[in-house]
């Protein structure tokens, strides 16, 4: 059996403002500055060194999660090639690269109400001044830990551990009912 045939996504409801999760390749890269710089070479984009900022290039993104922790995102099916490329680039650099493609799911929220929806249960200020395009951070949404990233003015992406995804989506839908009312 091939990977693709077995690949399943978490069954989550969707809505006009809610992008259903798409499978992706994901890695957590941890290591010192030199390793992060080398990894950027291998991944194809310089990893962000500014706190709480993401770097993107085409369909790849690197999100700063902590001073020595980056979340690398790429389309589904690129786990092996990225692993190989990074292994080459990181030769001689102590580091940790761990595949977390299946650990979490990405939930996209878009539209003029995206900020309003998230601010109901996320304690961070999400206006553009406080949370500009390109910002990303681990935070909380209700009782779930999430990675929140704003790739565009009216688009947020939540990276959520898979077992919390249903909770997060149902909570968003509950909040969304208020805007309809």
């Amino acid at each position: 059996m091939a990977d693709a045939a077995l690949r399943r996504t978490v069954g989550l409801p969707t809505a006009a403002w809610l992008e259903s999760p798409v499978p992706a390749s994901r890695f957590i890269l941890r290591g010192a500055a030199a390793a992060r710089a080398a990894a950027g070479q291998g991944f194809g984009l310089p990893l962000p060194e500014t706190a709480c900022r993401a770097a993107t290039d085409g369909n790849r993104a690197a999100l700063w999660l902590g001073p020595d922790e980056q979340l690398l995102l790429a389309p589904d099916g690129e786990v092996d090639s990225i692993e190989a490329a990074l292994a080459r680039a990181l030769q001689g650099h102590a580091h940790s690269l761990v595949d977390v493609s299946h650990r979490q799911v990405g939930i996209g929220i878009h539209g003029p109400h995206a900020e309003w929806l998230l601010e109901a249960q996320c304690p961070l200020p999400l206006n553009l001044r406080a949370f500009p395009v390109g910002m990303c951070t681990r935070t909380v949404f209700g009782k779930a830990e999430v990675v929140l990233w704003r790739p565009a003015e009216q688009v947020f992406r939540l990276e959520v551990w898979r077992s919390f995804a249903t909770y997060v989506v149902e909570l968003l839908r509950e909040i969304e009912r208020e805007s309809a009312a």
């Binding site: 957590i28 941890r30 290591g31 010192a32 020595d68 922790e69 102590a94 580091h95 940790s96 761990v98 595949d99 977390v100 493609s101 299946h102 650990r103 979490q104 551990w161 898979r162 077992s163």
Partner: peptide, 12 residues
């Protein structure tokens, strides 16, 4: 120590 942790509870 040159050693890093990643939670993989939900990866597997």
């Amino acid at each position: 120590l040159q050693c890093w942790l990643t939670s993989t509870t939900e990866q597997w």
